[in-house]
Amino acid sequence: MIEVQDVGFTYPSGVEALRGVAFTVNNGEFIAIMGQNGAGKTTLVKHFNGLLKPSIGRVLVDGIETKKTSVASLAKKVGFVFQNPDHQLFSETVEEEIAFALKNFGFEEETIKKRVTWALSFLELKKYRKTSPFMLSGGERKRVALASVLAWNPEILILDEPTIGQDYKQKEKLRQFILQMQTQEKTIVIVTHDVEFVAECNPRVLLMTEGRIVADGQGKNILANPEVLAKSSVVPPQVVQIFSRLNELELPKNVIDLYEAKDLLLKKLEKRLR
């Protein structure tokens, strides 16, 4: 559980990136933090594993205040996958890359071996075990970065812009992966501006603007509310755009899923057409 209590954060340069942010991430939840570039999304999640400490207020991870502990000890609970895998890959082989964190955390030799093998097969990287991570394609490098974090089995997983530069198939795989993590009752926080991806997953959404949280609730309630979205410069998902132009059909307002939209349209139109 992560408790964010009235957190404010100001960078040394004087930029006020967070103001009065307060919410709780419960165990097993799936949250998407959305908003424009520069709204403070990444700054906020960097507080979850102590990379940044609040200037005002407190952040508690499982009851422990982040100010009073180290990044290394928080990182064991909170896995953080950065946007660009090239910012973390440095080892000669994929296997060593995945073992890196496990060594840092002082796992036993045997456990490291087991966990590396598990992470490799979980993310379909087995055949690259001895390959240099720099030889892999962009999508594969992203998977190695993910595997290197999953390996230590953190309870909370933060993914910063996981869909950037990913094609349709890769995004679908990512969605499957998140669903799978959900069944294992992992807590997942993604930072993203990919509104279509969020519409497909329908997680809890936190909408940020200028360092504040301006909306907090179920995806379908927030993404289908054009007024709230406009305030934080988020473009509504296509389904919402379509429905907003069909006022005279008196369709329900909170639809973001394509299949639900289809069923509703069929029902409405069948009646009308007959």
Binding site: A72, A75, H87, Q88, A101, N104, S148, V149
Partner: peptide, 13 residues
């Protein structure tokens, strides 16, 4: 700075 953060997040001290 980003790289340092990414590695610290993997337990590098």
């Amino acid at each position: 700075q980003t790289i340092m953060d990414a590695q610290k997040a993997r337990g590098l001290e």
